[in-house]
Amino acid sequence: MMAVMRAAADLRFSERHLLGIETLKPWAIQELLDLADGYVELNRQPEKKRPLLRGLTQINLFFEPSTRTQTSFELAGKRLSADVVNMAVRTSAMQKGETLIDTAVTLNAMHPDVLVVRHEHSGAVALLARHVECAVINAGDGRHEHPTQALVDALTIRRRTGRLEGLVVAICGDVMHSRVARSNILLLAAMGARVRLVAPPTLVPTDVALYGVEVAHDMADGLDGVDIVMVLRLQLERMEGSFLPSVREYFHRYGLTREKLARAKPDALVMHPGPMNRGVEIDGTLADDIERSAILDQVELGVAVRMAVLEALTRELREAA
């Protein structure tokens, strides 16, 4: 009897931080998605507040500006009754490396329980995590990972199709510079989905085949028979530096249109992390239709997923208290 209980306890989410999808086991991902499902229902009630994190302090530390993600984390913390503080740090005022650690040490002295951190440089959140005693959630680091967004996308898919395993998912656009794409590739692969990257060769990272993904340079071919189409936002500064010739050529080859979408399965789900560049990565009228459906879902589920992550990361702390 004791042994069985211990095994069950071991199979609970026991990570100290959420720095990326890379270190998560499939069952841990499953657990976070299950928890989030419950919060979706809660968030639709008039009374959304739970006392779970009462007394705990959550600091949102954003070195890079963000409205959606930061608001989502703030709401998640407040609905779980944490004391939430937002800190926007302007990196221009900071030196790199040493001062990031200085910031970590200073914040640590304030005894926060959860730090939600976004930083423009890959690996910066992990560096900061080594210098604090509380849980750290990566809200996006450089072009490395954005784990909560990948969880949101996975939950969106799971609620629409009932599963992740066996699905064929096309991730289209600037994979090279996208932390969302990296986290999604890792998560979808871990959950048994097949991932196909659709991008020009200049926007596909080197040796990406090691992740076990397929690569297509022709969008119509890449979308052939897929269940899910994830369209990445194209940063317009990619037009500099010869990644791409022009907006018009990008839209011509990689803009999602009804014509190209016709190659996907008839009920294929279209997703976009938003905000969309109409006429760049997606056709304007198609964007209107999609915005009414899945893309707003993704925003709604964002709060629920972040509540699930906050619950899972503070579990040991709460149980010790």
């Binding site: 010869s242 791409l244 010739p245 022009s246 018009r248 080859r253």
Partner: peptide, 15 residues
């Protein structure tokens, strides 16, 4: 190969 043959920005090769 590059826009205006200036060597700075690839031309619209696909088009």
């Amino acid at each position: 190969f590059t826009r205006g043959l200036e060597g700075r920005q690839i031309a619209e090769l696909g088009l």
